[in-house]
Every structure is written in C-alpha cells, then in structure tokens.
Design a protein around this nucleic acid. Structure first.
Length: 792
RNA sequence: GCCGGGGUGGCGGAACUGGUCAGACGCGCCCGACUUAAAAUCGGGUGCCUUCGGGCAUGCGGGUUCGAGUCCCGCCCCCGGCACCA
C-alpha cells in the first residue's frame, strides 16, 4: 500500500475530470423535459489582487458538496463561476501601483482560477463569465436600454451620497451609519444629476416572495428587506396656500390627527421653498440641504425658519404657518408634512423649540376630541372616516409610502460599464442604438478621480455624432455601479455565449430560478434586492418566465480573524495555498466543512486540521486493508446496519437540513466501526459506502480509494440509498426510568407489547431498589424507547 | 425603542418532531504502547462535586409535564436589521 500523498493524487484526478469534462454541463436539447435539474450558485468573487481567502473556500466548498450530491442523485446540475471584475479596488490599485485596472484584474483572475482548480471544485468552466468582458457588458448595456425605454432607468437631480474618498456617488444601500460601506469614509450629501433605477416601482412586489414550490428564504433576510422597503399606509392630503393659489400635498399615517395640526413643515429641498419662501428661509434651506443626513439627525435642537406663507387645513380651514426644517426629508412621502405636535414626538419637539401651539385631539381612550364632526369617533375608525370625507371634497385620498428609494447607479469613476447614452443639444437624451453596442470602455491615460468621470476627459471618445440627428453630441461619461453587473450575471451563466441576446428565454426558463444560492447576508438590501428587482422587471418585459431569481437562499457565516470578518478591506486574509500545499485540498475542504454549522461565524484557526488529516490517513489505510482482506461477496453483518444508518444521516443532513459538519461526524463513526474488523464479511460494503459518501467533501481521495476497491468514475456513480429494511432493528435498548430518572437499561425485542415492557421494567433489580416497595401510580411507555415508572 | 437571531465542557460543536443517566464527532490536555530518543502512529481517559451511595449541571428565575437544552412566562447578556421615514 502506498502512503497517502495528496500532492500526487489531487493533480492527477483534477486532470482526469478535466479530460472527461466531468463537470461541464451542456444545456438540454429543446423540448427535453422530465429531468431533474439543479442550479447551484454561490455569489461570484471579486477578483482582487490578492487571492481567495478561507471565507471563499468555505462558501464554495459548501456549494461543491451540494453540487456533487445532486449530480449523483441524478440531476443535471449547473454550477458556474465568474468574476465581478469591474469596480474600485482594481482601479485604486492601478492608481496606487501603476498599470491598468484591466491588467490587474485579469492577472488576479488567472491566479484565483488556478486556486479554485487546485481545490478541485466541480465547476463548469465553459460557462465562465466576467463582467468586464465586452461580450458581457454589451448585454449589461443592452438591458439598461430596455429599462430606460420603460422609464425604469431615468436621470434626475437629487441629493445623493457622495464618497469624498472614492470620489463617486454611493447607493443608499451601501451607506452604513453614514459611512461608505466600501472604504469607510464619511458620506456627504450632494445635489447631483444621477441615473436611477426605479426600484420603487416594485416596492410592493419586493415585499412579497413569489418563490417556486420548495423555495425558501431565511426569515431574517426577508425581515431585513421588508424593513428596508418600509411600507406605511396612510393618506395624501392637499393643503392649500390661498395667497399663491397652490396646493401642497402631504403624506401622513395619522389622518385621524388632522384636527391637531398646528403648523406645516417642508424639507429644505422642497421646490416651494426655492420659489416662494422668504429670503431667511431660503438661506436656511441652502445650508441645511448641504449637510449630511447623519448630522441633521444627530443635532440636539430642531432647527427651522418660517417661510412667510400659510397653508389651509382642508378639514377646518385653519391657516397653518409653513416652516422649512431639516427634520423633514425631501425624498420621503411628499417632502412636506402637517405637523401635529400633540401626537408626534418630532413635531412636539419642534413646537417646543419655536413655541408653537399644541392641540390634543385624541384622549387616553383613543377617542377623538376637539375634532369637529369626528369628535367621539375611535381613532382607528376616524382614519378612514376622515380620509373618506377628504376624498369627497377632492382634498385627499388613501396613500402608501415607502422608505425604499430608487437605486442610484451612475458612478463618476472609470472601471465600469459605460452607460450607453448620448446627449445631443438638439435631441436631448438619446439612447445608443442596440446595433452600436457595446459602448466600449476606452483606455484612458489618467483615471485619477476628480469629482467627475475620468471618461469625460477623453475628448476623442466623448464626442460623437448624435444617432438621431447626426449633429454634435457627447457621451454619458459616468459608468455603471458594479451591482448592475451582478444583478443579472446569474442569468448569463445559463447562456453565456449567446451573441444574439443576453440570454435565450427557453434555456433560462429551463434552468432558473437558481435552485440554491449561497452568499453573505451583507447583501440583503443591496445585491439581493437589486437582483429581485431586475428579475421582476425582466419578467414584466416578457424576457423570462419567473418572478424571483433565487428559489432557496442560504447565508454562510463569516470566517473571522481577530473577531472581524475576513475581507480584503480589513486586510485580515488567510489564503488556502499553504494549507493545500501542506495537507492537500481534500483535507482543507473537509476541515473547513467540519468547523461548524454553515450559517455561524467562525474564528479562523488551523489548529484542528491535523485531526482531519489523521482521519483521511486512517480512511486511506483502512480502505486498503479492506481491499486486501475483506471478502468480495460477504454477507450482511453488524456493520451493515451502521452503514445504512450513515447513508441516511449523511443524505438527510445534506439534502434536507443543509448541514455539512454532522455528516463528517457520522462518517468518522462509520470509519471507527469499520476499523474494528477490516476483514469482516460486510467490511467491503462499509468501506465502499464510506468512500462514496465522502466524495462530495474529499473528491480526490475518494476517487483514488474507489479505484483501490476495484471501481471507476466515482463522480458519476449514483448516490448510495439507505435500505429501510436494513435500518430496522430487532432489538432496542429499553430505558427504564423511575420518576423520570434513568435507573436501568437493557436490550429487548422490538415486538414486545407495552405490558410486556412494563413487566420487564418492573422485574429489574435496579428498578426495584429505587421503587423501595412504593406504590406504582402510573407507567408511561414510549414505543421503542423507554418505560417510565411513576411512584409515590 | 421596534423587529429578527442566539447563549450547551478548556475550545469548535452534537442532541433533527419534549423521551437513551446531555455532551456525538473533532481539537486540546493527561496517561500508556511502539522508539535509544523524538515525530508519526496506535490504545485508554477527560463536564463539575463526591463521604463512591450518589448529587449537581445546557445564561438567570419561575412554570407546564411522568419526563424540558428542546414548550410557556419574566429577566440578563451577545449578534444583526431599522430608527427625525411623518
């Protein structure tokens, strides 16, 4: 028997699989149905200059186990890989170290692909896509144009999050506590013209999960998304500014407090302020609007200025002074509110600061007071009654408001997909015609961020003829947020070489939605929400036949170092290379799966990997012993049942419980049992099964041992099936309790009646000792488990 | 504050629907075998206390039950989301 030398066998089997195209999965012929299919996907990596870290190894190994499991259970399994290749880190590295972002990115891709191949993951490399490849971003641009045509992508001036460090706009979803999620810099508010995707058009639908049968999302992810979308039901009410003959709408969730309104407040950015407000109010608005939202919220005292105008309360004709104050946000509701200081904490605070009147209109019993004809109504009933009344007057209607904002996706940086838009003095905003796609990202000499897009300085590229009128025009110089790329990359995988369309509908509808998506929960309100938005919109465009991109979603825990998530921004990375070199890919894979439950964070330590290696060596030695010593047609024996139990446990854990560490424990138990007697009549069956079951975790050693046992091509062998009759036992260990405490245990036959079991229990000397002659009050029998004797 | 998740040996964790003295499997540690020695390997031990009968143990306090890590109530702590969103 040779020694277990992973450095010998792993490259060998990787070559065998590649030559056999073991994990390349062609699309089915049209019309091919009645076939199990599985689309296994993990979030694609960002090819940083460094390499994979143990967090990736964990994530992709988990996906790999699932992939092998479903392949060997007869499914056609799609398991692709690609690169989220655009983005700031490569661009910043290029600025820092010289070179071109493309070169840096592509060099990283080469390295990471090699790392992945060394780990032996079952990936269909024919389907590899990279977001920076013109063959990919051509279709990103094409999809943008479809959104643009339907007004789901639009341009407007708005206060946006500006990262002074990255010199670009950041989407709300990636501003955390007022800081840039990527680089940590303090975010500023700037009023800029930006491109937006109209995610709010799908606000309601994004709160619902239209998952296919068997689909399931974690409750906490849905909660996070629903919090983020933040739906509020209420009413929109028109207040009139008589002297200007203008109506100003407000949104409120408390129409029942309408009689308690004593003043009126607008956001600093409200157009009314700029148009009609007093100079003092305009001055205030100018300063307030420029401040960060964080600072606005943090200040102790509320601030504001009277605009010089009054709004009329439609319900009682009262004239309310209109103030401008920064506690009212322009991009929520209508940007203006009716202020009810008695029943709203913030309005109350403002009223105290500026000594404005407070009027209570709901008493402790929740009944309206001082509210005209609605006095005496319960607040809840008053809500609808007042809105009904307003509606009849043409002064209000029920309304729903969302916290969710549209997704700003234009970036003032270089390394991204150009937005295919042309500005013409004569024709305005003109989309680049489909036949002119892709708009190639040109090389530039200088991509230093300067607050405007680097592409804007590339005169040659910038100036084009207008596609409509042929006149002089300029290109949009902003590029797209990389989250646009990742909002559809998973669809491109199913049809990666299509050059007629981003994807063909038939093949997409065959494979999708993704059966199982694995990735970090940090993308709950970003990537995962954007992808759902994309799919719903594409479904409405008739481009695909489903409403959700990901049927089942799983969030792996972080691999931490020093308590914080392993990530390139933190710089606390441990890569797999040294470990693979020292212990082999199988040991690394097995170890990282064995570390604990997949959804929990785990502090990285390699102190336990030795145990995993010991286990593999023991398996190696034992299987060779079995191959030599055990009979080839042995009878079932004591090992047989243990083997079937292990099949059942491993299969159930992987398929149903999605738990990947306990199968390894079960396999270790089986191997221990096998070690008792490697020459046993059923040792060969046990050994073959153990090798077969460990294959998803440690495919190289499994393949080698499978061969040692005289077989071939384990990767395509059917997954073992537990034999139900073999699982049945003839006897079981009866536990006998007295008053709930275990006092004796012994083997009994499974076919005994309850009375017989009780009789046996009572016959036990140890039980008798604890009974002490006391009266038996009651006996409880749990079939196949225990007898509990209750006394005293 | 509101919403969601979680607290089990020295450590990672197991116990899947209330039912095998809770602690599988692994790490670590201790003892032993092999060895001139070490490594590797193999075998054994390892929750706490104990008068060796047993007692106590799953964040804390109560409850339901013949029986609770598992269910219910209250509290403490940790992690995550939302938070001037009208």
């Amino acid at each position: 028997m040779d020694r277990y030398e992973p450095e010998q066998i792993e490259p060998k089997w990787q070559r065998v699989w590649a030559d056999a195209r073991a994990f390349n999965v062609p699309n089915p012929e049209p019309g091919a149905e009645d076939e199990k299919r599985w689309y296994q996907l993990e979030m694609l990596p960002y090819p940083s200059a460094k390499s994979l870290h143990m967090g990736h190894v964990f994530n992709y190994t988990m996906g790999d186990v699932v992939t092998h499991y479903h392949r060997r259970n007869g499914a056609r399994v799609l398991r692709p890989m690609g690169w989220d290749a655009f983005g700031l880190p490569a661009e910043n590295a290029a600025i820092r170290e010289g070179g071109h972002p493309r070169d840096i990115t592509e060099a990283s891709i080469v390295l990471i692909r090699e790392q992945m191949q060394r780990l032996g993951w079952a990936i269909d490399w024919d389907r590899e896509v990279s977001s920076h490849d013109p063959r990919f971003y051509k279709w990103t641009q094409w999809l943008f144009l479809r959104f643009f045509e339907r007004d789901l992508a639009y341009r407007r001036a708005a206060p946006v999050n500006w990262c002074p460090n990255d010199q670009t706009v950041v989407a709300n979803e990636y501003v955390v506590d007022g800081h840039c999620e990527r680089c940590g810099a303090l975010i500023e508010l700037r009023n800029m013209t930006q491109w937006f995707f109209k995610t709010t058009a799908y606000a309601d639908e994004l709160r619902e999960y239209e998952l296919p049968p068997g689909g399931e999302w974690p409750e906490r992810t849905k909660t996070i998304q629903r919090n983020w979308i933040g739906r509020s039901e209420g009413a929109e009410i028109l207040f009139r500014v008589d002297e200007l003959d203008r109506d100003i709408p407000v949104f409120t969730t408390r129409p029942d407090t309408l009689f308690g309104a004593t003043f009126f407040v607008m956001a600093p950015e409200h157009p009314f302020v700029d148009e009609y407000a007093s100079e003092a109010a305009k001055e205030y608005a100018k300063h307030a609007g420029a401040r960060r939202a964080e600072d606005r919220a943090a200040e102790e005292e509320k601030t504001g200025v009277f605009t010089g105008h009054y709004a009329t309360n439609p319900v009682n004709g009262e004239k309310l002074p209109i103030w401008v104050a920064d506690y009212v946000l322009m991009d929520y509701g209508t940007g203006a509110i009716m202020a009810v200081p008695a029943h709203d904490e913030r309005d109350g605070e403002f009223a105290r600061t500026f000594d404005l009147p407070v009027r209570t209109v709901i008493n402790e019993d929740g009944v309206l007071v001082d509210s005209g004809e609605f006095t005496g109504t319960l607040a809840n009933e008053a809500k609808t009654a007042i809105v009904d009344w307003l509606h009849k007057q043409g002064r209000g209607a029920p309304a729903v408001s969302f916290r969710l904002r549209d997704w700003s996706f234009s970036r003032q940086r270089y390394w991204g997909a150009p937005i295919p838009i042309i500005y013409c003095d004569a024709c305005g905003v003109v989309p680049v015609p489909d036949e002119d796609l892709p708009v190639l990202l040109p090389d530039v000499d200088d991509y230093l961020p300067k607050g405007k897009a680097p592409l804007a300085s590339n005169e040659e590229w910038l100036h084009v003829d207008c596609p409509k009128c042929g006149g002089p025009a300029t290109r949009e110089a902003d590029t797209m947020d990389t989250f646009v790329d990742s909002s559809w990359y998973f669809i491109r995988y199913v049809d990666p070489t299509n050059d007629e369309a981003p994807f063909g509908r038939d093949v997409v509808d065959y494979w999708m939605p993704v059966s199982q998506y694995i990735g970090g929960i940090d993308h709950a309100t970003g990537h995962l929400l954007y992808s759902r938005f994309f799919v719903k919109a594409l479904n409405d465009m008739g481009m695909l036949g489903f409403r959700e991109p990901f049927a089942r979603l799983y969030h792996q825990g972080w691999i931490t170092m020093g308590g914080t998530k392993m990530s390139k921004t933190k710089g606390n990375l441990v890569g797999p290379d040294e470990l693979v070199e020292e212990y082999g890919a199988d040991a690394v894979r097995l170890y990282i799966m064995f570390m604990g439950p997949g959804d929990q964070d785990k502090e990285w330590s390699d102190s336990g990997i030795e145990g995993t290696v010991r286990f593999l060596r023991r398996l190696w030695r034992l299987v060779h012993e079995v191959a030599e010593q055990a009979p080839t047609d042995g009878e079932p024996g004591p090992l047989t049942r243990k083997t079937h139990q292990t099949i059942a446990r491993v299969s159930d854990d992987i398929a149903r419980r999605f738990q990947f560490h306990t199968p390894i424990s079960a396999l270790m138990e089986l191997v221990h049992a096998l070690a008792e007697d490697p020459a046993a009549p059923d040792a060969r069956f046990a050994a073959e099964t153990a090798v077969s079951l460990i294959q998803p975790y440690a495919p190289h050693i499994a393949e080698e041992l499978w061969q040692a046992l005289g077989h071939e091509r384990l990767w395509e062998q059917p997954w073992p099936v537990a034999d139900a009759t073999a699982l049945e036992e003839e006897t079981f260990e009866l536990v006998v309790q007295v008053n709930g405490k275990v006092r004796d245990r012994f083997e009994v036959g499974v076919d005994l009646s309850e009375d017989e079991l009780v009789a046996l229990a009572l016959a036990s000397e140890r039980v008798q000792a604890h009974l002490n002659g006391a009266q038996v009050r009651k006996t409880i029998v749990v079939p196949r488990k225990l007898v509990n004797i209750v006394v005293g």
